[in-house]
């Protein structure tokens, strides 16, 4: 306790000496404190705006069916219950869907990160002819909306062929990859996955800002190019890697565009969430026997809210763990252009 107080003393004494007696009413102080209060209000308010939908979902998810119609219950449920979770987990095969989503998002995350780190390093550190042109093409891949390429890409995977090799052995027919995870594997390993251009950009900026001397030292010590990359560059690129991995995982997890296009009937979280309302309504109507008209829309909505909460729960848990690294990494990534 003593040391910090000691350190504060000279500064405070100095300030007291310089200020007039009415220092509490000094304009600077008023300005400073009013700004602090304003800032605190603003941060708390905006945090509330961000957290409100999640809190609302939590509140809904723990409610009993009876609570929806109780006008005295708004946010805090009167009858705490886990029935909603139970029902939704059964209805959407939660565990199975969770595993599938983890495999898909995790797999594409790793492959995308590898491909983009390689490409980013290539663009940042090696001088070759046409480098700027090629990097311009990376930017182009960010700019072109995926819808433009949607049909040809779909047809490509529907009738997939590796430079005519498969056709050669298979008697003139390609392989239909739609409905499997292969389209995701192929597009992420080649750095053409979801928003991969952005990741290449992040890696390039990061590696560009990295001191050249360290690489040269590794080179002098006899490390080859690959060894330098894996042993020296990658361990130092952890902030960028975490940022890219988080983005890649989350965007794949939430994506509906590519998942609906490549997988017709997959047990992946984003697709399940998209149809969960209809599924639940159907289940309730068949179990109650009242037909679709007899389904209580508020009850369905309650279950849908619960399922969305369950859908984002893994992301929230993951974010809670990597959040510290992520926030720190932002400071060092140098996404700066």
């Amino acid at each position: 306790m003593r040391t910090p107080a000691k350190r504060m003393d000279p500064a405070r004494a100095n300030r007291l000496q310089n200020l007039p007696v009415t220092s509490w009413f000094h304009l600077d102080r008023i300005k400073k404190y009013s700004w602090i209060i304003f800032r605190a209000l603003l941060i708390v308010g905006l945090s509330f705006v961000i957290l409100y939908p999640i809190l609302l979902k939590v509140s809904i998810a723990f409610k009993d069916k009876a609570d929806i119609y109780d006008p005295t219950v708004v946010f805090i449920p009167r009858n705490f219950t886990l029935d909603n979770f139970q029902y939704v987990m059964d209805a959407m095969n939660y565990v199975e869907v969770l595993i599938h989503s983890f495999v898909l998002s995790g797999g594409t995350m790793i492959l995308t990160t590898i491909a983009c780190a390689l490409a980013g390093y290539g663009f940042a550190r090696f001088a070759f002819k046409g480098r700027n042109l090629l990097f311009g093409l990376v930017i182009l891949t960010i700019l072109v909306p995926p819808q433009t390429l949607m049909v040809p890409i779909y047809l490509l995977y529907r009738d997939f062929d590796l430079l005519g090799l498969i056709r050669l052995f298979n008697g003139g027919e390609g392989v239909n990859l739609i409905g499997s995870y292969w389209p995701f594997v192929i597009s992420s390993i080649t750095g053409m996955g979801l928003k991969a251009g952005l990741f290449i950009f992040i890696f390039r900026q990061f590696f560009k800002g990295f001191p050249k001397e360290i690489e040269e030292a590794a080179h002098v010590d006899g490390a080859g190019v690959f060894k330098t990359f894996f042993r020296v560059m990658l361990p130092n690129a952890v902030p960028a890697i975490i940022t890219v991995m988080l983005f890649a995982f989350v965007w794949q997890w939430n994506d509906i565009f590519f998942t609906t296009m490549f997988l017709d009937n997959a047990k992946v979280m984003s697709m399940q969430l998209q149809t969960v309302g209809a599924t639940i309504a159907y289940q309730i109507s068949t179990s109650a026997g009242g037909g679709v008209g007899g389904v209580d829309p508020f009850y369905v909505s309650m279950l849908v809210n619960t399922s969305v909460l369950l859908g984002i729960l893994p992301l929230l848990i993951m974010y809670a763990f990597v959040q510290r690294h992520f926030v720190e990494s932002v400071e060092r990534t140098g996404i700066v252009g």
């Binding site: 491909a115 983009c116 390689l118 490409a119 390093y121 290539g122 663009f123 550190r125 090696f126 001088a127 070759f128 002819k129 480098r131 090629l134 093409l137 990376v138 891949t141 890409i153 490509l156 192929i186 597009s187 390993i189 080649t190 750095g191 053409m192 290449i200 190019v225 990359f229």
Partner: peptide
């Protein structure tokens, strides 16, 4: 420079075909 091509090769293949 050639190593540079090696590093961007996966992306380049993807770019051309996909």
């Amino acid at each position: 420079g050639l190593w540079g091509w090696v590093f961007i090769a996966p992306w380049l293949i993807g770019f051309i075909f996909l």
